[in-house]
Write a protein that binds this DNA or RNA. Structure first.
Length: 592
DNA sequence: CGGACAAGCTGA
DNA sequence: CAGCTTGTCCGG
């Protein structure tokens, strides 16, 4: 990618007048992924690469970023003057990083530069931060060896605190810490300050990061300015929150890795269950088996292979006693509504959509809704008119009703929809995985149907199920404190459960890696999902380049591109002009 | 993106 | 052919 631009040759001798410099500016309009040249009038003053400026483009004023402060314009175009310099923007190395990310995730540079820019005007480069007196850090051998390895994956069990890693990183100079959520980032920054280390939160404290202060933030922090960058830490690198959902679907972990590589500084990724991408990138550093084991909760596997598949409900007789007692209990079932699959009690006919024949969801209000075409209808059998339906695959709403009856005490339902309300206090909660976010701690977390996660038709299903178990492990805490996870399964030997049972995530990684290699899934291939009205046009423009498999379209008009690696995939996408119309290109789609 | 302009459709 | 919509092009 073109990090090198033609430089204007030095003028031969003094001219009659000092000619105005020419700045090359990328407009802050993601749809216009093209730079334009402007004269820099004396009234505007000097501009530097990365500065945020205003330009008039085609008769309107728009913002933009200086990509080159001394450009050689193509001959024969009359240049307009820059309207003004607004202030400081991303430093040159971040501008280059944005170009790389635009290539890597088939996006536009402006999208990344927005993320990398200060939220309010920063007129001048702030004075270098005074690093203050050195802070004495208790030496942690594991953390030190991870930082010294320069490219390390530090596998710490769920109950372990990552703060010592962040602290040791910040003690080495300006650290860039990328956390999976804003809340985690804030908390880490607060603890750094308590430990006597100044910490900026991205993007709010952009100017302080630009002055060399250690910076902490959620995924956008991968784009924070860092003039004195000494090391990069990505907390919980396995967490899907590091990836942007909207296209370009960039991953803060991968941006952080590339950034550290370019800066030549150490990069440490932490995770209780590192992704295969991480393991393929860096050296694994882990505590002793005993220490690691101690940081995981106990796992109770309830084997349901011999339960009658028709009669067995959600609540096996081995599960219910574990839900009694006086500790807080969370039951996780990733299905909303009353039932995801129902059949007529009278004639056995499956409840399906009258319009498109997809299975319908029994909603809390009693109606049946189609998730494919959004049609709604009353709950009755289309074949025989009977009004009684049997719930074959119970959802959270129904599960709550059933558990309340079983336990004879109040049970509270928790879903994504309850996130903004205060939960009624109770001992027992039933919910989707949202329950793991909304209830801070518990004695027991029970996964009512973990098989749904284990065998989900997605190549990352095992890793995602592991992510859920890690989250649950943090809610219940370490085994020494009585933390306990319970799973009901017909796959008691599944490698995810095996890994948690033995507190050894390496067991999962080995099995998952072999499977993905055999099926040519990432990290042994690079994928991109192409969708939207203009998807077909892009596929046509792409043609059949060597090394790219074009799969699809599926029933909703989506294609999947597969290449041996990201170099091949990104080069092919970069060489294809983007057609007009709605188009989404999701590189590294998390749910395929 | 959004303005400019050209080509296409409609109504009397 | 004015008056309008729709599409394509292009910006320094």
């Amino acid at each position: 990618m073109g990090a090198h631009r033609p430089r204007r040759p030095a003028p031969l001798g003094p001219g009659p007048l000092t000619p105005s410099r020419v700045a090359r500016v990328l407009p802050d309009e993601p749809a216009i992924d093209r730079a334009f040249d402007y004269l820099v009038p004396d009234s505007v003053g000097p501009v530097e690469v990365g500065d945020v400026v205003r330009i008039s483009l085609h008769g309107r004023r728009v913002g933009g970023w200086v990509l080159d402060a001394d450009a050689a314009p193509p001959p024969g175009v009359t240049l307009r003057p820059l309207a003004k310099r607004s202030g400081l923007g991303p430093p040159p190395e971040v501008i280059d990083l944005a170009s790389w990310a635009a290539w890597r995730w088939a996006g536009r540079r402006a999208t990344f530069l927005r993320t990398a820019s200060p939220p309010t005007v920063v007129p001048r480069r702030p004075r270098r931060a005074d690093s203050g007196p050195p802070v004495a850090i208790p030496a942690d051998e594991l953390v030190t060896s991870a930082l010294d390895a320069r490219q390390a994956v530090l596998r710490l069990p769920p109950a372990a605190d990552v703060f010592p890693v962040v602290l040791a990183a910040a003690a080495r100079g300006q650290a860039l810490v990328v956390a999976p959520s804003v809340a985690t980032a804030r908390h880490l920054a607060l603890r750094l300050r308590r430990a006597g280390i100044d910490a900026a939160i991205h993007p709010r404290d952009w100017a302080r990061a630009a002055a060399g202060t250690t910076v902490v933030g959620a995924r956008a922090a991968a784009w924070a300015p860092a003039p004195d960058l000494a090391c990069v830490v990505v907390v919980d690198e396995h967490d899907e929150a590091h990836q942007e959902e909207r296209a370009p679907t960039w991953s803060a972990r991968d941006v952080a890795i590339e950034r550290a590589r370019r800066a030549g500084v150490p990069c440490v990724l932490t995770s209780p269950a590192p992704s295969l991408e991480a393991l393929g990138w860096g050296r694994l550093v882990a505590p002793s088996r005993g220490t690691e084991r101690g940081g995981w909760p106990i796992l109770d596997v309830i084997d349901r292979r011999h339960d009658d598949p028709v009669k067995a409900g959600l609540w096996s007789e081995r599960l219910v006693p574990r839900l009694r007692g006086d500790g807080t209990v969370l039951c996780v079932l990733n299905r909303t509504g009353r039932a995801r699959l129902s059949a007529c009690v009278a004639c056995g006919e499956l409840a399906r959509c009258a319009r498109c024949e997809a299975a319908v969801v029994h909603q809390p209000d009693g109606t049946l809704a189609c998730r494919r075409c959004d049609a709604e209808r009353p709950a009755l059998c289309l074949a025989c008119g009977a009004t009684r339906l049997k719930h074959l695959r119970v959802g959270v709403t129904r599960a709550r009703e059933e558990l309340e009856a079983l336990l004879g005490e109040p049970v509270v339902e928790v879903t994504g929809a309850t996130a903004d309300r205060e939960l009624p206090s109770a001992r027992v909660y039933v919910g989707t995985e949202a329950v793991l976010h909304q209830v801070p701690s518990a004695q027991v977390v029970a996964f009512l149907d973990i098989d749904q996660e284990l065998v989900a038709p997605r190549y990352r299903a095992a890793e995602q199920a592991m992510g859920l178990l890690v989250r649950a492990a943090r809610v219940v805490g370490a085994r020494a404190g009585g933390g306990r996870l319970v799973v009901q399964t017909r796959l008691p030997r599944h490698e995810v459960l095996d890994a948690v049972l033995k507190a050894d995530p390496g067991r999962l990684a080995a099995a998952d890696d072999a499977r993905r290699r055999a099926l040519r899934f990432p990290p042994h291939a690079a994928l991109a999902e192409v969708s939207g009205a203009a998807a077909g046009a892009l596929i046509e423009a792409l043609g059949r380049p060597l090394g790219i498999d074009v799969l699809g379209p599926d029933e909703s008009g989506r294609w999947l591109l597969r290449a041996a690696d990201h170099q091949v995939l990104a080069d092919a996408l970069a060489a294809t002009p983007r057609p007009a119309g709605r188009l989404r290109v999701a590189v590294d789609p998390p749910r395929v």
